[in-house]
């Protein structure tokens, strides 16, 4: 069924494949370039709001699990710290983008504010969980829930565009 033969070009093929994979991985891993159009900028707004909402909701889930006594400190601390890092990373990346026209300034200001709220809220929650401060953790969870609601509003507005 299968012929016995040494595949001569296979080694060259493997080297080519490896080089191609490395280039593709590098290209795919690159952060998207500056937004040149309003369309591109709004796509970036949507992606950033989605990522922020995910980080914020991870925080509110962790807060709920802590309040119900369903998880222990280190696991929640690790999850919230990861979410906080994600939120701050999204905030930095988003803030570095310049809106292509003044028409996008309002959405930029709104999302920049919400990104700051997300990072700060997750930071407050992390500190409260580490200290075992239930009241502050509840307060931080409430703030995060408000931020999540505002992020959903941004996403809904983007979807209507």
């Amino acid at each position: 069924m299968f012929a016995k033969s040494a595949a001569g070009p296979s080694a060259r093929l493997a080297v080519g494949l490896a080089a191609g994979l490395a280039v593709a991985a590098a290209a795919a891993g690159c952060v998207p370039g500056p937004a040149l159009t309003a369309e591109g900028y709004h796509r970036h707004v949507e992606q950033s709001a989605t990522a922020l909402l995910s980080a914020v909701r991870t925080g509110t889930l962790a807060a709920r699990l802590a309040e119900e006594g369903r998880a222990f400190g280190p696991a929640l601390d690790t999850a919230v710290s990861g979410a906080e890092d994600d939120a701050r990373s999204v905030a930095d990346t988003f803030a570095s983008r310049q809106p292509p026209t003044p028409g996008e300034d309002a959405v930029r200001d709104r999302l920049t504010g919400l990104a700051d709220n997300a990072g700060d809220g997750l930071g407050d929650l992390r500190i409260a969980l580490r200290r075992g401060d239930d009241a502050t953790a509840r307060q931080a969870a409430g703030d995060l829930a408000d931020t999540a609601q505002s992020l959903e509003a941004v996403l809904a507005a983007e979807a209507r565009r």
Partner: peptide, 22 residues
């Protein structure tokens, strides 16, 4: 349903905590 995207191993364990506790 919560629109959470999984980025970390620490998140993977959370549904088990939600279902079974500590």
């Amino acid at each position: 349903p919560a629109a959470i995207q999984v980025e970390h191993l620490s998140q993977v364990a959370l549904p088990v905590a939600a279902g079974l506790g500590r």
